[in-house]
Design a protein around this nucleic acid. Structure first.
Lengths: 187, 187
DNA sequence: AGGCATACCGGAAGGGCTTCCGGTTCATTG
DNA sequence: CAATGAACCGGAAGCCCTTCCGGTATGCCT
């Protein structure tokens, strides 16, 4: 049952992958409205190549933002350990909201992906991050016990979808409060 | 400034419009996965005709379900007048959730449309329905005063997106409770 | 170094949504 | 009733995402 001797990844494949990611990074930073064909051409590869490396448009995007997502996840654990539960939760929610705002249009498509827009590599840890915050709150009695992290993720995805407008920050804050109050225990 | 004498709508236009709606109704009831081209062909018209009548795929769908949406809106006012505020709100939310479940995939695309997936003709009344329920709750002291109906609509859209699975009903109920508790006053 | 199998490349092709425009038909007017 | 022109019809064409497959280049073994 030894893993079959994997042949080393060909150098041209590595090069192409890197160049695609670079180009896509720029493209999405600029407008998030870049077609796969355009990205492929810009990267000097055929569309087929692009799709073998990233089987779907979402896969490409998720890969691009994988690192940032990881950072957000880490933050949850940090906050949970350092702040009062309610405070930690609100701060983190704000961070999540801000992140989505930054890449509006991108988050749009991330959201559309699998269950909540994160691939398996991100999904579990993300739920874990939420769980950490919820557990801390449950332990202190501030939050209802036994809340399903998935339900919270679902609600968070709403923040993702607040359209960019002058009143977006205010709306975000309001919705955030609604969500938080729903999670809190009722004295 | 008298309105310009509008010429009567041509009969072929009416016929086509009706036939398109009929065909689309069947098509979406069956699977919700019908292409515009397919609908056009099935209705015996060209794609151009289809698009002049309904400028976009969403427009067609919204038109199809306009009556049902109106019914849901009416229900809100009825419930608000007949039941205790909290009860009315929960019942209505359940109805909204059920409606979305029924046409999962359709609601998917409805949701993607304009602000919340409803055209102007539906959007305002829908907000009005929510406002009626919120006002009743605020008056009785059960709900926070001054909640923005749009924020609630945003949260409701989550119910729309719970994936069809064995545990969907349970999840819906849980999320619904979270939303409701967020709207209630904190004693 | 040479040969082989494999992983990779690239573009053609299929299916979808939407736009555009020349040709046609029907309601209106004289 | 006939002529008229606005409104309508239909499909070709553009753009997008994704799949498929013949051709190719490269890592590995001898």
């Amino acid at each position: 049952m030894t893993p079959p001797p994997r042949r080393a990844t060909r150098t041209d494949a590595q090069t192409n992958r890197a160049r695609i990611l670079a180009v896509a990074g720029e493209a999405f930073a600029a407008s998030s409205g870049a077609s796969m064909t355009a990205i492929a051409k810009q990267a000097g590869v055929g569309v087929g190549t692009l799709y073998r490396h990233f089987p779907t448009r979402e896969a490409l995007i998720v890969e691009l933002y994988h690192q940032e997502i990881a950072k957000v996840i880490d933050l949850a654990h940090t906050l949970a350990a350092q702040l009062p539960p309610l405070e930690a939760l609100r701060r983190w929610f704000e961070e999540v909201a801000r992140y989505g705002k930054l890449k509006y249009g991108v988050s749009e498509v991330i959201h559309a992906a699998t269950n909540g827009g994160l691939d398996d590599r991100n999904y579990e840890p993300f739920l874990g991050a939420i769980a950490a915050l919820l557990d801390a709150g449950a332990a202190s009695g501030d939050l209802k016990p036994g809340i399903d992290p998935q339900d919270v993720l679902l609600q968070l995805s709403v923040l993702w979808r607040i359209p960019p407008a002058p009143d977006a920050p205010a709306r975000t804050a309001r919705v955030l409060t609604l969500i938080l109050d729903g999670l809190r225990t009722r004295p």
